[in-house]
């Protein structure tokens, strides 16, 4: 008995140490990004980019990217696509996952294969663009939402969580005469909060981070999301014309680049701590009892 507690304590100590170390290495890049964004450019160059703590702080990089209001327009687009997009994603994903989780439903494995198949084979960029154009979504903010309505991978995850719910609860409700929809809303969803929160987060982050669809489908500057804004600042140095005399002038200082990384990353990073409460143990039992 004595032995066990020692091992337990040792294991616990090791566990805490390793986790702390990992977390420390994960903080460094953010420290770096934030520090560089606040440091005068000459100091960044002198130190070969190695500024983890700025010696004195300057906000010029932030002032520069805030000017002109383009950043705020971009936030509007991104927030729209994250909020509306994620809600629609969840609606479609959950309504598909429910039938697909019914193991006895005839045709189920065929439908599942039908979904998984789309994870493997894709026609590429050209036909997707043609469809978006045919459907009339070109240049609309809906082009950032509709073509990615359901992610097959996330759908499979939700379906797999639904499958694991004790069937007894479901059956009990059915005997009580509850309809499928009310079972979904009243029982399955509350029981599935961890996975709903997770997949919601995944969709939201995906929406926040995507840029390629906007690059292809959106032409007007007022419909461009923050990720395009970020890319424009990071990639300004890419000289397409190869004109040596012009290329150097268009490069943004590294402090401006990092400042834009900060303003385009922090908002979505801040979402996570709010979602975490849904990962606590005991959700299942608590809700069943309640």
């Amino acid at each position: 008995m004595e032995q066990v507690t020692i091992w337990n304590r040792l294991g616990k100590g090791l566990n805490y140490t390793l986790l702390t170390l990992l977390a420390a290495t994960c903080v460094i890049p953010f420290l770096y990004v934030i520090s560089v964004s606040l440091t005068p450019i000459s100091e960044v160059i002198r130190k070969d980019g190695l500024v983890l703590i700025p010696s004195h702080i300057t906000w010029t990089a932030y002032e520069e990217i805030m000017q002109g209001g383009r950043l705020f327009d971009a936030y509007k687009v991104t927030i729209f696509r994250v909020v509306v997009g994620t809600l629609l994603n969840m609606l479609f994903t959950v309504t598909m996952a429910l039938p697909l989780s019914r193991k006895a439903m005839p045709g189920r494995s065929g439908f599942l294969m039908f979904v998984v198949f789309t994870m493997l084979f894709s026609g590429g960029m050209i036909p997707s663009y043609l469809i978006v154009k045919e459907v009339g979504l070109l240049n609309s903010e809906w082009a950032l939402i509709i073509p990615g309505l359901v992610n097959a991978f996330y759908l499979m995850i939700v379906k797999s969580f639904f499958e694991q719910l004790p069937e007894a609860i479901d059956e009990a409700a059915r005997i009580d005469g509850a309809g499928e929809i009310s079972i979904l809303v009243r029982i399955i969803l509350p029981l599935s909060m961890p996975v709903i929160a997770t997949i919601g987060l995944f969709y939201a982050v995906w929406h926040w981070n995507s840029y390629f669809d906007a690059l292809l489908y959106i032409n007007s500057p007022e419909n461009q999301p923050v990720q395009l804004f970020l890319r424009q600042i990071l990639l300004a140095s890419v000289a397409i014309s190869g004109d040596a005399a012009e290329a150097a002038n268009s490069v943004n200082p590294v402090s401006v680049q990092m400042a834009s990384v900060v303003v385009t990353t922090l908002p979505i990073v801040a979402v996570y701590p709010f979602i975490q409460k849904h990962f606590t143990k005991g959700v299942l039992v608590g809700s069943v009892k309640g």
Binding site: S220, P221, E222, Q224, L228, R231, Q232, L235, A236, V238, I240, S241, D243, E246, N249, S250
Partner: peptide, 11 residues
């Protein structure tokens, strides 16, 4: 061929 290809044009 413009010199700021990644900067979008305004309205």
């Amino acid at each position: 061929i413009g010199y700021r290809q990644t900067t979008p044009m305004p309205a």
